[in-house]
Design a binder for these strands. Structure first.
Lengths: 199, 199
DNA sequence: GTCTATACGTCGATAGAC
DNA sequence: GTCTATCGACGTATAGAC
């Protein structure tokens, strides 16, 4: 595939996304200047506007891409309809942990910077988020219908389980006491117990 | 108690804390200017520096006060040593929900603005946070020792339960479907199940 | 595609009058 | 205790050369 001579656009675009993600996560959207991002990328501030309409669009694109990746990754690994609710829940828990843990910065931004989106952009992200929540909610509902799980309130259980799983990102460190495999088993046990599933 | 004639200091100090809390929660520490806060309080920007050394100290004081209030509130309602681990856990869950839910802005700031603290200030808040976590950890350990609870990993369970409970703040609304009493029962059930406690 | 230069506003914080 | 005025720095975004 030919590339325009002297052009460096694709690489710069990628560097922009990566630098913005890292800086937004570390210092917060409002605290990071376009100048800082440009410095990290290695271009002048003005040049960034070749790749993004403005700072707000840059933030939105990062969040939107993250949610699209999440939903698509689930689609690609979704289990067939035939498996039991218990298998599906186990699959979801493992998927959630393995998707989110290596994406610390993106996950952090996706929770922390929602308030810095314009109302229109916020709505788009919220819709994606609800779509993801509904995946778990459907699994829990199915399991309740066939007696596998038992909840006082299924909607609240959905929120609670996602909060519990995502909280993993705030303390897990690769160099820490526990391996990824171990935390996966630990959280799986907590979720299954909370769901009232006998294993 | 006499107050200096023409003085309005105590009231202004309180208004400053409240305005800063609300604005930091809504827009983020970095995005809020001292001028904005002053406008909300009804004074000029310069006057704020009679009540806080600088913006950083203002943020730290809000977070530190919140943690002090939390720890003190627990001390005041702490149950005697004689009660069972199950009773203690129930007490903790109800306490956590009832303390955190009416303090949405403070809780939000305490999680979101940690990165905007200087390293020294951050350490102080972290110490308070670990102290609070150890309260729950001790309850879970005691319950595990006498066979009331069962965990694969008690430390992780501590984090998971706190994340689950605090997640309530992100979706609960007073006007919503569920009353405070109801969510309290729902989360109590989830926590007890996750702890493997037979009720 | 990237640069320099710059418009124009706002920032945190201080000085000094009242 | 609060005000006005102000400092120097930095913010986003654009214009136009190369």
């Amino acid at each position: 595939m030919a590339r325009k001579s002297g052009s460096n656009g694709e690489k710069t675009a990628k560097q922009l996304r990566e630098a913005a993600t890292a800086l937004f996560a570390k210092n917060g959207y409002a605290a990071v200047s376009m100048r800082q991002i440009a410095r990290e990328v290695g271009v002048q501030a003005g040049a960034l506007y070749l790749y993004t309409a403005d700072k707000q669009t840059l933030l939105f694109d990062l969040l939107d891409q993250h949610m699209q990746d999440l939903l698509q990754a689930w689609e690609e690994r979704a289990t067939p309809h035939s498996v039991t609710p218990m298998d599906k829940l186990e699959c979801f828990v493992r998927f959630h942990i393995r998707f989110h843990l290596p994406r610390g910065d993106e996950v952090f931004i996706s929770y922390m910077e929602l308030r810095n989106l314009t109302p229109e952009n916020f709505e788009v992200i919220q819709t994606s988020r609800r779509k993801y929540e509904s995946i778990l909610h459907d699994i829990l509902s199915d399991g309740e219908a066939d007696g596998t799980f038992k909840f006082v309130d299924t909607k609240v259980a959905t929120f609670a389980i996602i909060a519990m799983l995502t909280g993993l990102n705030t303390w897990y460190r690769d160099e820490g006491r526990l391996s990824l495999d171990m935390v996966e088993e630990i959280y799986l046990d907590l979720v299954m117990s909370a769901a009232g599933a006998k294993r």
